[in-house]
Design a protein around this nucleic acid. Structure first.
Length: 653
RNA sequence: GCUGGAAUGGCGCAGUCGGUAGCGCAACUGAUUCGUAAUCAGUAGGUCGUCGGUUCAAGUCCGAUUUCCAGCUCCA
């Protein structure tokens, strides 16, 4: 029997050789990748063949399914190792995930030393090269089997399966686990794996259920891939905004101020100021927004009308005691009703609409103590919030405008490739959480779907993610650890106008309810800053840099000229400083680079004499000498157009 | 909110079996006035997150608490 592998090489096997042995032989050379191949001249997917009779499985290197299989099998090896080292541990579940796999155990918390011990045990198991063998039992017998093994979680899992199901198990050596498969045929191909961490996780993700210990690990087909992944994890740590942002003195936290209340330091505040001015100018000058400035708190009466007092009181900071105080206030968790009252302050005609209210709005939300994280999850934050009050016939056009503005913001920040668009729908199985009828929900969701389609924006849909008053488009971004957060939201609201008795007068002189779009242009500034820190590893586009140019005089003799250069830049709106310390030029350059400065201007005798600057940038290294005027023109253009210049890889010394 | 880990000069870290704290960088002072990633010498700076307990003696042991981190859960 001849098998032609993907890479063109041909292997020959005796006819008597079993598929198992052939598969095993091929899979030994994972790096060579043998999944699809020709058997006796016929093209077959060997993995499919072996999947179907559920006995064997072959995986290939660059194959997602194959990699998941490898990882899943590794999680079984992990489980076996844990049972060997800690026989009291009870098994829960152990799937493969994007970055590797995990397995949950009922056991005392694992220390790093424990993980090292387990890892060593795993190596032993793999070295033995145990075969994985599949067998099935009728449901009743399967339950009995796991009861005898003293695995209550496995029993529970089987009990949830249909009465007449044949329950499949995989056995390797002395270890047997409930599992649908598929798996490698042998543990031997696991050559590159690592246990990453352990932490608590709830049984079935339910905080009322048992607390389990989850061990995270990863596995790859090749050792250098594992090494690359571990290096990637290190890179992620270097980019982590929560670490880098503190190191760069963009923000800090203080014990006595409290959780979720970061302090933006001068550099961080500067970046946010630049974004804020840009967003406000863009909204007002190009998209017809008008600005409001409304209170950060209100009497409880307001929140009773809006419904927040009933639905969201736990999430608000309430000032005062309802029992004893005549008036109780709360810090605002959103701006909506405040802007509604701006609208209601005078009677509106259909000619006045649409009205687009924008406000750089600080909000307060009392998040649970364990939820806070760096700048991405905080108790006080500021967003570019806006509400568009529109006639129903203007709704689609305005909604499109909001999407276009959001898209422009993302593109300008250079992050348009890093987001996904989500159509957040209601949950038809949980109707009491929402206002409005099924028909209205289906209709508005249909409108949004059509808008996204017309704009050729790829999106996915998710149920149960809508606001209680309407569906929305959420623009999602992932942080360096792969955790997803909402950056921008645009919400379709056809119901709250009723609640607040908002109306306009139409052509016939009748009162009509307007529609409302709740939206952000760039989401919360703190979170956006966090995102940019990670995106650019602290090396922001020039226009956003808190310090855009540092002038480095060769010696104190050229201080006056350096100061003249700085003033000229400042006059043109460039954030520039002078490093006036009596240090050598190499030292100043080193520090400026560590500070991730986009531009350094080195000035000495020659520059002063001829009115030049020697430009050194993050983007092109030594850019040579230029006249001061030319450099000012160059950087002003770069800032004005918000250009994102390409970085050169930094030499490490 | 839950589980675990952590907290020592500005930052990064060491501190053994309990015996009243060390290092590097930064800072400061002086010298140096320098051409593209670290000039030399010196000086100062901390009561060990906070509160309480055990002890002759606590950075070290115990309890509480605050904050930070990882993860879970939550996020109209």
């Amino acid at each position: 029997m001849k098998i032609t592998l993907k890479d063109g090489s041909v292997k020959e096997y005796a006819e008597s050789k079993s598929v198992y042995d052939i598969a095993l032989d091929i899979s030994e050379g994972l790096a060579r990748a043998a999944c699809a191949g020709e058997v006796n001249g016929e093209v077959v997917d060997l993995r499919t063949v072996v999947d179907e009779d559920c006995e064997l499985n072959i995986l290939t290197a660059n194959d997602e399914k194959g990699l998941a299989t490898l990882r899943h099998t590794t999680s079984h090896v992990l489980a076996e190792a844990v049972k060997n080292v800690f026989p009291d541990a009870k098994l829960a579940i152990g799937p493969s995930i994007d970055t590797g796999y995990y397995y949950d155990f009922e056991h005392a918390p694992f220390s790093r030393e424990d993980l090292d011990k387990i890892e060593a045990e795993m190596k032993k198991i793999i070295k033995k090269g145990e075969k994985l063998e599949r067998f099935t039992l009728p449901r009743a017998e399967a339950i009995k089997f796991m009861e005898e093994k003293g695995e209550p979680y496995k029993v529970e899992l089987i009990q949830d399966l249909p009465e007449d199901a044949e329950i499949s198990f995989y056995k390797q050596g002395e270890f047997t686990d409930l599992c649908a498969g598929p798996h490698l045929m042998n543990t031997k191909p696991i050559k590159a794996f690592k246990l990453i961490s352990s932490s608590m996780a709830y049984w079935r993700g339910d905080s009322n259920k048992a607390q389990l210990q989850r061990i995270y690990g990863t596995a790859f087909t090749k050792k250098d891939e594992l090494a690359a992944y571990l290096e990637h994890l290190e890179d992620i740590k270097r980019r982590d905004h929560n670490k880098l942002g503190r190191e760069m003195e963009l923000f800090t936290t203080v014990d006595v101020i409290g959780q979720g209340l970061p302090l933006l330091m001068p550099k961080g505040a500067k970046i946010i100021q630049k974004m804020q001015r840009w967003i406000e100018d863009t909204e007002d000058n190009e998209w017809g927004y008008v600005r409001t400035k409304t209170p950060l708190m209100a009497k409880s009466d307001l929140y009773k009308i809006s419904g927040h007092w009933g639905h969201y009181k736990e999430g608000m900071f309430v000032l005062g005691d309802e029992e004893t105080d005549k008036e109780v206030f709360a810090l605002r968790p959103m701006t909506c009703p405040f802007q509604y009252y701006v609208y209601k302050a005078s009677q509106k005609s259909y000619r006045d609409l649409p009205i687009r209210y924008g406000e750089t709005s600080t909000l307060f939300r009392n998040e649970d103590s364990g939820e806070m994280h760096g700048l991405t999850r905080v108790r006080q934050f500021t967003i570019s919030e806006g509400h568009l009050i529109v006639r129903p016939d203007q709704m689609v056009e305005e909604f499109k405008g909001c999407l276009a503005l959001a898209k422009y913001c993302l593109e300008t920040l250079g992050v348009q490739e890093d987001v996904t668009y989500r159509l957040s729908k209601w949950d038809p199985n949980n109707k009491e959480k929402y206002i409005g009828s099924e028909e209205v929900w289906e209709e508005t969701q249909g409108h949004i779907r059509q808008v996204l389609t017309e704009l050729e924006i790829p999106f996915y849909e998710e149920e149960g993610e809508a606001a209680f008053y309407g569906p929305k488009v959420d623009i999602q971004a992932k942080n360096v650890y792969g955790k997803e957060d909402t950056m921008i939201t645009i919400q379709w609201d056809a119901v709250l106008a009723e609640q607040f008795d908002m109306y306009y007068i139409d052509q016939n002189g009748d009162k009509v309810r307007p529609y409302i779009i709740h939206r952000t242009a760039m989401g919360c500034y703190e979170r956006t800053l966090a995102w940019l820190i990670e995106k650019y590893a602290g090396k922001f586009p020039t226009w956003l840099c808190p310090e855009q140019v540092r002038v480095l005089p060769i010696s104190e003799k050229y201080m006056d000229y350096a100061e003249k250069v700085r003033k000229e830049l400042a006059k043109n709106g460039v954030d520039a400083t002078v490093d006036n310390r009596s240090e050598k030029i190499g030292y100043k350059i080193r520090e400026a680079r560590l500070d991730k400065l986009p531009y350094m201007l080195i000035v000495g005798e020659k520059e002063e004499a001829e009115g030049l600057v020697s430009v050194r940038s993050r983007f092109a290294g030594d850019e040579g000498q230029k006249s001061l005027g030319d450099f000012v023109d160059q950087i002003c253009k770069e800032i004005r157009t918000k250009e994102i210049r390409k970085e050169i890889p930094q030499e490490t010394k």
